[in-house]
Design a protein around this nucleic acid. Structure first.
Lengths: 220, 220
DNA sequence: GACGAAAGCAAGTGACTACTTGCATGCAAG
DNA sequence: CTTGCATGCAAGTAGTCACTTGCTTTCGTC
């Protein structure tokens, strides 16, 4: 990581912006966080908007590499790993994303270029689910329409997004740990699109083919 | 709706805040939007923070009434109606929620009292799902653990939330119409927790118990 | 050692901010 | 008619904002 004031300003600008938003990211605060003089900011970038624009655009250009195989082997494990990575990446950029969303009306460009990364992830997940169908994993008891599968993909991404964005703000809505939640999302998703999932260990299953309401009921 | 300047200020404050956030909601803008003099604002509320605080708190106190029956009859229809109402309510407050989330660090109180409404909805949905299990609707081929059901409830709420918040910002992530998306969420959710759902009309089903990948595959 | 680029420092500019003060106006109740 | 009360209007205060200017310091290169 280079140490010239230009990079320190870019880094500090992204950090201050994530905490205080566009209006709250004053040139004074950014320069102070970068440990450089406020004038240096203007000498390098000309204006606060130019600095914030390039800083946020550069940060949003970080696209997480795919970790979904082209040919599925174990859908639950592979989707769980993907959702873990996606959740971690979204959690890291949580504050930044929040500010981008609330500033999208007055500063649309950075928000737009930041959404490209999410869209790429969406496309990859979609490709993977298409591969699931192509390789005959969707052999559930009832057929699932392609449109419904597409909606389910959006649902999974939305759930992981909402988890990463809201868990710290309203913990009561997330009774399960992050990992248990992601596992539940993935398993619900897979069952929802007709891909059978394994029975987790340590559960009194009874006879899986008959009514199992009594077997899975536990004191709340 | 009363027309005294007090209510007009409260209404205008909420509107301006939803569009510009805490810092961007200047007293000048609010007074202008309310059609009253800026001094009247201070005479009524004393300070900008007091006005914004009461305005946002009052708006966030709007709790949508429940429309989930205590005893389930048709889970898909009932959950679809609930998700439609929840989606509509969240969409209406979209901009406000965005600002609340990004301002939560510097002004936690309104964000906190706004999350109470969502939590109430979460609790009601959870109660309904408990009723689903109690009345024997979860008779799918495999048992679903209570923890997983809880995670699935979080997943459904998260998906509806993300849909309402992000659809206009990144339409490419939502290939289906809002209604078709909600239907897919609900059906995926129900199948995910072991509640069988009907087969939509107009789909070549083939034999539902055998592999149906060929039957549901369509050209993309 | 001389030179030039890059940085810091101090000060200032004009615009905007929340908020206050003093006074004139309109209006409703006594 | 008069007494309050609520509001509008004009002006002002102190602070912050983005941004500029002029000058000095530092430092690597020739």
């Amino acid at each position: 990581m280079p140490d010239d004031p230009r990079h320190r300003l870019l880094h500090a600008a992204a950090e201050v912006y994530a905490q205080h938003g566009w209006r709250g990211a004053t040139t004074r605060r950014i320069a102070e966080a970068a440990g450089v003089n406020e004038v240096t900011l203007f000498r390098h970038f000309g204006s606060k908007d130019a600095l914030l624009g390039t800083a946020v655009a550069e940060l949003a250009r970080v696209t997480e590499e795919t970790n979904l195989p082209a040919v599925p082997v174990c859908p639950e494990a592979e989707l769980l790993e993907w959702s873990r990575a996606h959740h971690a990446a979204t959690s890291t950029m949580r504050d930044l994303v929040r500010q981008l969303m609330s500033d999208a009306r007055e500063h649309p460009e950075p928000a737009h270029c930041a959404s490209d990364g999410v869209l790429a992830g969406f496309a990859r997940l979609r490709q993977y689910v298409l591969a699931l169908r192509r390789h005959g994993f969707m052999n559930g008891p009832a057929p699932v329409t392609p449109a419904e599968v597409r909606g389910a993909v959006t649902m999974l991404m939305g759930a992981v997004f909402a988890d990463a964005m809201n868990r710290e703000l309203m913990p009561a809505m997330f009774p399960l740990s992050p990992d248990a939640s992601l596992r539940a999302y993935v398993r619900t998703f897979l069952r929802g699109i007709g891909v059978p999932v394994g029975i987790p260990a340590g559960i009194p299953t009874g006879m899986p083919s008959e009514r199992t309401t009594a077997a899975v009921r536990t004191p709340e």
